[in-house]
Amino acid sequence: MKINTIPVLTAIALFLLSFSCSEDNSPTSEFDPSEKGSLSVEFDNVVGNRNLQLGGQQNYTNAAGETFSVDIFDYYISNIILTDKNNNQYIVPQDSSYFLIQESERASQEITLHNIPAGNYTSITFTIGVDSLRNTMDVGRRTGALDPATGMYWAWNSGYIFLKLEGKSAQAPDDAGGKYRYHIGGFGGMTEPTINNIKTVTCSFGSSVATVRTAITPTIHMLADVMKLFNGSTTLSIAQNPTVMFAPFSVNIADNYSHMFNVDHIHND
């Protein structure tokens, strides 16, 4: 069986290659350049290789060896850009490019972008959080996901909370009430420079392509791994840092979670 895999894969690869080549030769044959379609991104929150479930027992273990549960996991996704195989970029218009993904709200976990030029997209770029312009704009424009009433907003230090992770842990110190709380934000400061935790990430679709057409709305199945927030270039210990909000250490957590997204697969239907 194993010996046969390589030629089979090669054949498939060759087939795909020839397919994509022919496509490049006659790009107009496949779709009308003025054609528009939609694209969905499903944010599937996981912990390592397990699905994230709020509440319950402290079933997850981080690299520091600490067990924990998750009660809240919310984050902003904004400023979305789609890149096609020819490196053409489609920038989603600002007014429809802010989303609050909440683990407690099933409907918030699938976002749909409309009016996208038909194309064969190979990666998605987005900001985890909210850019500085939207952090300082008039309250009249703060609607939808950006309404301060969503609770992802620091009232005492004007600015959005980009990502919120809260839960319980046996290793959290008593004075933290057995809980850990990570509220990460910081857009760089209004009048004086402060921490900037705005993270922009690009997730490649690997060998897959999202074929946006009027008749095809691809769904990108994106995994967001809570464990990456703990286990990254900084090993986050709940015992040592049970509460991190607007503090220099938050930069380490933002660095860690900037690696938490990964495209698992794409449905083109």
């Binding site: 008039d138 301060p148 907003y153 009232a155 005492w156 004007s158 209004m190 009048t191």
Partner: peptide
């Protein structure tokens, strides 16, 4: 000086 806009100020005491 944590709040830079009067319109956003009341959220803090609330």
């Amino acid at each position: 000086g944590g709040v830079h806009d009067l319109d956003l100020f009341p959220i803090a005491p609330i």
